[in-house]
């Protein structure tokens, strides 16, 4: 086993152990708790919060994937080409909307709770996936396109059999970006009463308890690390496969 893999394995075990029995780690966090304050957040279970946090990110990312991949396919078809230049510039400008502002603007419309957070995560997640899918679909070598046309594939067959598989590594990179950004942004959702790990961080900020801020932040950072690693592994594997297929 390589040192890197061993490090990841140990990391996973520690994270799972911490989520399962947080109290066992109390001595680790105790030095950061200010005089006599509890070292571990107990208002709600860390495991419950983590699962709810992940569920929210997963739902928003999946919805964003479906919508933005669909839109990117639409604007790269002959019928939708008219919308391509505009959608490019909207995607570019849309990135400038700060996630906190999206969240703040969603609250007046959808009220408190998980809904504004989901909406903000969804809206903010659209752009990286859309941009990457667009790049993936528009940078397919013309020779490949011609070959597919030459063997008599219909437009739909070309899309499903050639264009999407070739664009898949880039699409996955977009989904990874979205998931990692959403993971961090979801913590802000706790300011509008969504159940995420942000709750732990905010509790720490309010009661001036660094131990809470630290454990909330560390869990989110660890989750982001694993999601990043998982997707990156998948991307390299897929890229290798498609490159192999192209050479044959």
């Amino acid at each position: 086993m390589s040192p890197g893999a061993l490090f990841r394995l140990v990391f996973v075990v520690v994270l799972v152990a911490f989520l399962a029995v947080p109290q066992a780690f109390a001595p680790v966090f105790a030095p950061f708790a200010s005089n006599g304050a509890p070292a571990i957040y107990t208002q709600s279970g860390l495991l419950t919060l983590t699962l709810s946090h992940l569920a929210m990110v997963a739902v928003a990312t999946m919805a964003a994937t479906v919508v933005s991949v669909g839109l990117a396919i639409l604007v790269t078809r002959p019928a939708g080409r008219e919308f391509l230049p505009l959608s490019r510039s909207i995607a570019n400008i849309g990135q400038t909307f700060p996630p906190v502002a999206v969240l703040a603007l969603a609250v007046p419309i959808f009220g408190f709770g998980p809904i504004p957070t989901l909406i903000a995560l969804f809206l903010y997640g659209l752009l990286p996936i859309f941009e990457n899918t667009l790049t993936g679909l528009t940078t397919i070598p013309p020779s490949v396109q011609e070959a597919a046309r030459g063997v008599g594939m219909t437009a739909l067959q070309r899309l499903i059999g050639v264009e999407l598989p070739l664009a898949l590594p880039l699409i996955l990179a977009g989904i990874r970006l979205t998931a990692v950004i959403s993971l961090g942004t979801a913590t802000i959702g706790s300011t509008v009463a969504a159940r995420t790990l942000g709750e732990v961080i905010i509790a720490g900020l309010i009661s001036n308890n660094t131990a809470f801020v630290l454990q909330g932040g560390l869990i989110v950072a660890a989750l982001a690390f694993f999601i990043h690693e998982g997707f990156a592994t998948l991307e390299t594997a897929l890229a290798r496969r498609t490159r192999g297929a192209l050479l044959i």
Binding site: V180, L183, G184, T187, I188, L197, G198, I201, I202, G204, L205, T210, V213, L214, G216, G217, L218, V220, A221, A224, F225, H228
Partner: peptide
């Protein structure tokens, strides 16, 4: 990867 809110707090 550290969530911004946590980094501000830490």
């Amino acid at each position: 990867t550290i969530p911004s809110m946590a980094l501000f707090g830490l």
